[in-house]
């Protein structure tokens, strides 16, 4: 029995890996994916320069503050430049991801439907959630590989900073970005499983992202217990917490919940698609 279970687990794992590799490989041969990556790098690069060296950038501000302090003769507490930089920069990367992620997730299932390969997956000895998980891991890996060169830029700056930044702050921020991306991609995958239209899937995902991003405002407007409860759904709030370097268990749980919810709903929707097609 135990052997049997172990064997089945190995088969499921092998299936997930097979789906994962195919999905990942499809991004690396897709012109669209390269286009998305280029635009991401371009805008992220502009942000990088602006946040760091621009006229309102962090270095200029820090210098101005020092100067003001000297002129007034009052000791002004110095800005922690690397920390502030990372906070602002990761915040802008988060907003940028809001636009990029729906494009990455939009074709996860719509393309399977258009090509008819959903029929191949559905008649293979592989469960729906294994397919969904494999796909999500694939697209998340691609997102991470888009982020990697940006990380290099940050490393160059942070290595030059004195005093050095606490590595935990950096790890927490980037992990937050990845987890937030995972949640958004997972929900986007679910939305892409609802329709055969790639554009519609992207639009729905973008609308959902935006709502989850700004739900804080709504929560504040409502106020009270309900407002507070809704406020916890906010991506922005939890992402900011992660970026500040105070990793809250609550934030991690929220992002993981979004990921699991997306996978669960995708598996259900694919099942429904097969069973209720009329």
């Amino acid at each position: 029995m135990a052997v049997n279970l172990g064997h089945r687990l190995r088969v499921i794992l092998a299936n997930i890996v097979a789906i994962y590799q195919r999905e990942l490989q499809s991004y690396f041969v897709s012109p669209l994916a390269y286009g998305v990556a280029s635009i991401f790098w371009l805008i992220a690069g502009i942000f990088f320069v602006a946040v760091l060296l621009g006229p309102a950038g962090i270095i200029a501000q820090s210098a101005m503050r020092d100067m003001q302090g000297q002129q007034m003769g009052i000791p002004v507490p110095p800005i922690d430049v690397p920390y502030e930089f990372l906070k602002i920069y990761l915040g802008s990367l988060g907003s940028l991801s809001l636009f990029i992620l729906p494009i990455l997730s939009m074709s996860l299932y719509t393309e399977e439907r258009k090509r008819g390969t959903i029929e191949l997956l559905a008649t293979s000895p592989i469960t729906n959630w294994a397919v969904a998980l494999g796909k999500l891991l694939g697209v998340l890996t691609f997102f991470a590989s888009i982020l990697a060169p940006i990380l290099l830029l940050e490393l160059i700056v942070l290595a030059a900073s004195n005093p050095p930044i606490s590595p935990w702050v950096a790890v927490s921020g980037h992990l937050g970005l990845l987890l937030m991306g995972g949640g958004v991609l997972s929900l986007g995958m679910f939305l892409s499983s609802l329709t055969a239209s790639t554009v519609l899937a992207a639009m729905m995902t973008f609308a959902l992202n935006l709502s989850l991003w700004i739900i804080d405002l709504l929560a504040n407007a409502i106020g009270g217990d309900l407002g507070q409860a809704i406020g916890h759904l906010s991506l922005l709030k939890h992402y900011e917490a992660a970026v500040r370097g105070v990793p809250e268990t609550g934030s991690v749980i929220l992002f993981l919940s979004y990921i699991l919810l997306g996978i669960f709903l995708t598996a259900q929707s694919v099942e429904t698609f097969r069973f209720q097609r009329s």
């Binding site: 088969v11 092998a14 299936n15 097979a18 789906i19 590799q21 195919r22 490989q25 499809s26 041969v29 897709s30 090509r115 008819g116 390969t117 959903i118 029929e119 191949l120 997956l121 008649t123 293979s124 000895p125 592989i126």
Partner: peptide, 26 residues
């Protein structure tokens, strides 16, 4: 099973695709 429209991933090679199918078919 061969459905009416063959279920193919156009960006894969013939060998790569068949290898993938063999994997998910166990």
């Amino acid at each position: 099973y061969l459905p009416e429209t063959p279920p193919l991933y156009p960006d894969m090679t013939v060998e790569g695709f068949l290898n993938f199918v063999a994997r998910i078919k166990g």
